[in-house]
Design a protein around this nucleic acid. Structure first.
Lengths: 203, 203
DNA sequence: TCTTCTCTGGACTGTCAAGTCCATTTCGCC
DNA sequence: GGCGAAATGGACTTGACAGTCCAGAGAAGA
């Protein structure tokens, strides 16, 4: 039996519980270190429920990628809506650094750290990760575009390239933060991103 | 029996063959997807040889991290030696982008992509990755320091922070390149790094 | 040549995880 | 309440992999 889309409230709740439990475990221990028994234990849900709602482990992992993207985007929603002013960008950057400090530089980016684990292993998962990062980057690009329209960025500025460069600084900064267990790494990377963004400021 | 350091030429050759085979497989498929049988098959080496030279799989993986660091640093040695001039930095950036194009944007950074797989799983491996990235960053920092001494960077420039920011752009750019299968991502990230570095140019 | 240490081959074991199956319970609806 | 569909529990099968063990081949020095 292939994947079943739950038609009852109970079914939906169970499916959601499974995905949430899996997402938490994956964030804590990595994809490879999480077994379906672990997921069932935390959800809680029995073995057959997992296979009732997901074709196999890979399908569950893809659902986790999507759920993680939703969670990240949702958590940052207010901040992301303000990315059309210098102050808003600064607030976002500061919040990102503060979050890493709070988490003691553990875990890196919930989406980005899945990339290294899945990109060369499951093409569909890679696409899902790309989608999550893309949605994130789009929010920034939209903000920068609005800034250009309002004359805060120079007419020659390229919001798409600026957004990509900022995402790279963010992901790279998070990777260094995670590896070195030092939130300062992200701060330095984002300070550099600030310089790049300001270099496109209207004169 | 714990790890044995080979005392004969033959033993050293075998150990080296094992590490190289493991490093190749890990780069191709990721840590979790590589079994010791796979390694033994490619090396070639029998099961007992693996356990003769390495205490367990984790120890082998750590050796792979170190070997990968050595390989990356070694391959880029001439380029890294030139990181004390604007032209040298440009050559290095261009070479990195060209390499990604050649590899069709697959694999990401050999060291960086291990981070997401191991950082939250094996503290010793995390330290080994940090060491590898640190050696890499140090080469850049040294070059930038020489540039400052020669008056090419302003006296107020901070070579350590610039090197960190550049490494973040590189790692982030490689991650986006890998996830999106698009070498342009790295080019955009490194163009941004260029802007940051030039912002510290002596006036 | 003998002896000892190193290196090698490969079978064996235990564990653990993915995926299957079917009986049972619960839900939604008439 | 009764019926069909959805959801659930958990045992079972199968396979893969980490790690063990021991016998034997090979090198190197006395």
């Amino acid at each position: 039996m292939a994947t079943v889309i739950p038609s009852t409230a109970k079914g939906r709740a169970t499916r959601e519980r499974i995905v949430r439990a899996a997402a938490e475990l994956v964030a804590e221990h990595g994809v490879a270190a999480v077994s379906l028994d672990d997921v069932g234990g935390r959800a809680p849900a029995s073995r057959s429920q997992l296979y009732h709602y997901f074709e196999d482990k890979d399908a569950l992992v893809r659902a986790v990628v999507d759920a993680t993207s939703d969670a990240v985007l949702g958590a940052h929603d207010q901040l992301l809506a303000q990315l059309d002013s210098w102050a808003g960008i600064d607030r976002w950057f500061d919040a990102l650094v503060a979050l890493q400090r709070e988490r003691q530089a553990r875990g890196g980016c919930p989406i980005g750290s899945l990339a290294g684990q899945l990109a060369e292993r499951d093409p569909q998962a890679r696409a899902a990760i790309a989608g999550g990062l893309g949605r994130w980057e789009a929010r920034l690009r939209e903000g920068l575009t609005r800034m250009r329209e309002r004359g805060k960025l120079s007419a020659a500025a390229d919001p798409a390239a600026l957004a990509t460069a900022t995402m790279a600084a963010l992901q790279g900064g998070l990777l260094l933060t995670q590896v070195r267990r030092d939130p300062e790494q992200l701060r330095i990377a984002l300070d550099a991103a600030r310089i790049v963004l300001r270099s496109a400021r209207a004169t």
